[in-house]
Design a protein around this nucleic acid. Structure first.
Length: 617
RNA sequence: GGUCCCGUAGCACAAUGGAUAGUGCAACAGAUUUCUAAUCUGUAGGUUACAGGUUCGAGCCCUGUCGGGAUCACCA
């Protein structure tokens, strides 16, 4: 059992024995002792002073005595202002280390027989992926890994928004202006190729709108519909959507195309398939670069018709009600939400209808216990409504639904805007970060024994490590700021910093093998140093960190843990001689074993974040 | 306007209600005859937006105020 839980249990027992009050061991606070005090772990005594009817220090003394007598791992204690500082025996730590290096699954829990679905990425097919998608993807991916580590079977899915007005804009634009160009003929990455036609469409629309604004028709619309005191400029800004739907010829053409798509016009479907095919080929490349994959794909072109049955159900159960015009509604005002329409008067469905239907279908397909949706916090309200509705419908999986809501990635100047061309493209960023890694690896001359391909792969790992760590170290809920001018650091609190500590350890692993060093005498080591103790205490916490990250859907905990451990290792490496000048053979064996343990945990924790370790740097 | 989220050093981020609020970047000063310096050590930088409250103890919980963002579509 973990030493911290041992202590928690022992303290709870002590309180019960001494003061006759039952205490929940999980609520006993046991923290690593801060550097300025003596000890390994500290127990906060304040919560027990009431039942003890004693001063904090007197209670601490009694509990300390009890623990010292009953827990063999405890070698001594001291008391400072209501904190009981406990010293753990070296024998315990040596045994802990020994057990750890033999446990390749350290930090992971056995399979729990439960399934969880994680939905992430879910892009539109009219544009390439951008920085916002990267955050979404990395969150989804690392959460999947973390859930798997604590025993779940994880099904990774995405819903691809492959239909609708947006993709029709790309299609129409390419057909009108494309002159038969293809990704192959232009050499442009195929998802970017499709995105470029979308951008062109928007430009053409803007041009059309500007010309229209000069027309007599526009003038009379302005005069008749303007609000008092509204300038012409403001009016036309607000009017843009309405204009596109009612006056624009391009708008009319797009709507015509959408109608044709919906009525399964063969020519339109062929075009749609061709262009979406290009986009998927591009996405696959980006996903591959990011090192992620999916177990099951859903397409909105299949799911957008879903939800009718669930609405029928809701009507029958009285959860929904019908208005006079035939539209179907849901009243959530008693839950602090609004009334919500779920089916239009003409019988067509909406976003929420689809999501209701999709939820039910996926439960039918997958039969998971939990469903995690990784979606930006803009949609918090939508998911509140969605989950509340499913709960009221009595769906059996409703209690297992979770919206992993995350903040947007912003630039120092604010949100990324397509129109202003400030969107940070995913592929560009990946390329840039690998370029920086390559540049900074010059003058290092370390990778000389490697083949060119191995060198490239190491640089890719370093660059991607920097990017992934940068994103995933931030708490999901907080919006994060990315400055493209400064891009991503490779020194300090970064992925490469952690990777570098692993590389240092990796060298020792080679040495151990080459020199066939006997590590078994490590257990005869007798004087654990503070730098070594720091590492042991940190490693000991790893399983708890993983578990907490799973409970809170928060990979940043794992990221910060990894950094903390790497930092402690670098200090250890700097302060103490591990190999060549280790004081004794036992010391050397211990420090090498400790290094192996750190390397094992770092590789595991970074693996949860989807970050690979390079062999050399 | 209603609801929700966020305000921590110049910047980017940490901190189960626990000890003197940490780490990195940037700045300055140092450390390679040593297991590679993508490393390490030091200096400087804070009224945790503000005002109350609860508590043995508050950056964290409660109330209010001020800033910033999101959302309140028969869009997705």
């Amino acid at each position: 059992m973990n030493i911290v839980s041992t202590l928690q249990n022992a303290v709870a027992q002590a309180v019960e024995q001494l003061y006759g009050e039952a205490t929940d061991p999980a609520k006993v606070l046991v923290n690593p002792t801060p550097p300025d005090f003596t000890g390994d772990y500290s127990v906060v005594i304040f919560p027990f002073v009431k039942v003890a009817k004693k001063s904090p220090d007197a209670a601490a003394a009694e509990i300390g005595e009890y623990l010292a007598k009953n827990i063999p791992e405890i070698k001594g204690f001291n008391i400072v202002k209501g904190f009981l500082n406990l010293k753990i025996s070296d024998v315990y730590w040596l045994g802990f280390l020994q057990a750890l290096v033999q446990d390749s699954a350290y930090g992971r829990l056995p399979k729990n027989g439960k399934k969880v679905m994680v939905e992430f990425s879910s892009p539109n097919t009219n544009k390439p992926l951008h920085l916002g998608h990267i955050r979404n993807i990395l969150l989804g991916w690392s959460c999947s890994n973390i859930l798997e580590a604590v025993g779940y079977e994880v099904v990774k899915t995405q819903i691809i928004n492959d239909r609708g007005v947006a993709i029709c804009k790309s299609m129409l634009s390419w057909r009108k202006f494309g002159a038969g160009k293809t990704p192959e003929s232009t050499g442009i990455k195929s998802d970017h190729f499709v995105g470029d036609w979308y951008v062109l469409f928007e430009q053409k629309t803007k041009a059309e709108y500007e010309i229209w604004q000069q027309s007599a028709e526009a003038k009379s619309v302005f005069e008749s519909k303007r609000k008092p005191e509204q300038s012409e400029k403001d009016f036309f800004k607000d009017f843009k959507n309405k204009w596109f739907n009612e006056y624009s010829t391009l708008g009319a053409e797009v709507r015509e195309m959408l109608l044709k798509w919906e009525s399964h016009d063969p020519e339109t479907l062929a075009l749609w398939k061709k262009m979406n095919g290009w986009v998927y080929a591009g996405f696959d490349k980006s996903y591959n670069d990011l090192g992620v994959s999916f177990d099951k794909l859903y397409y909105e072109s299949d799911t957008y018709v879903l939800g009718k049955d669930i609405v029928e159900d809701g009507l029958a159960k009285g959860v929904f009600f019908k208005k006079e015009d035939g539209s179907i509604w849901l009243d959530l005002t008693d839950a602090g939400l609004d009334q919500k329409v779920v089916v239009r008067a003409d019988g067509t469905s909406l976003y929420i209808t689809q999501d209701l239907g999709t939820a039910r279908m996926r439960h039918h397909d997958l039969g998971c216990e939990r469903y995690v949706y990784v979606v930006a916090d803009e949609q918090n309200y939508h998911f509140q409504v969605l989950f509340e509705t499913l709960k009221r419908l009595g769906e059996p999986y409703a209690a297992g639904l979770h919206h992993l809501s995350y903040g947007l990635v912003e630039l120092p100047t604010g949100r990324m805007k397509t129109r202003e061309g400030t969107v940070v493209d995913a592929d560009d960023l990946i390329e840039e970060v690998i370029r920086i890694a390559t540049e900074q690896s010059k003058d290092r001359g370390e990778a000389e024994t490697l083949t060119e391909a191995e060198k490239q792969d190491n640089l890719r790992r370093v660059g991607m490590g920097a990017l992934k760590f940068f994103i995933v170290k931030v708490h999901p809920k907080k919006k994060m700021i990315f400055n493209p001018e400064e891009s991503v650091d490779l020194q300090g609190q970064t992925g490469p910093y952690i990777q570098y500590s692993y590389v240092r350890i990796n060298k020792f692993m080679h040495l151990i093998e080459k020199e066939s060093i006997d590590l078994s005498i490590a257990s005869q080591y007798t004087s654990i140093q503070p730098q070594e103790k720091d590492l042991l205490v940190a490693i000991n916490d790893y399983p708890n960190v993983v578990q907490k990250a799973a409970e809170e859907y928060d990979p940043s905990l794992v990221a910060n843990f990894s950094y903390d451990l790497a930092k402690k290792y670098h200090r250890f490496y700097h302060d103490l001689s591990i190999y060549h000048r280790a004081e004794t053979h036992e010391t050397r064996a211990f420090r090498l074993t400790l290094s192996l343990a750190v390397g094992q945990v770092l590789k595991s924790s970074m693996g949860l974040l989807g970050i690979e370790m390079p062999e050399v740097m």
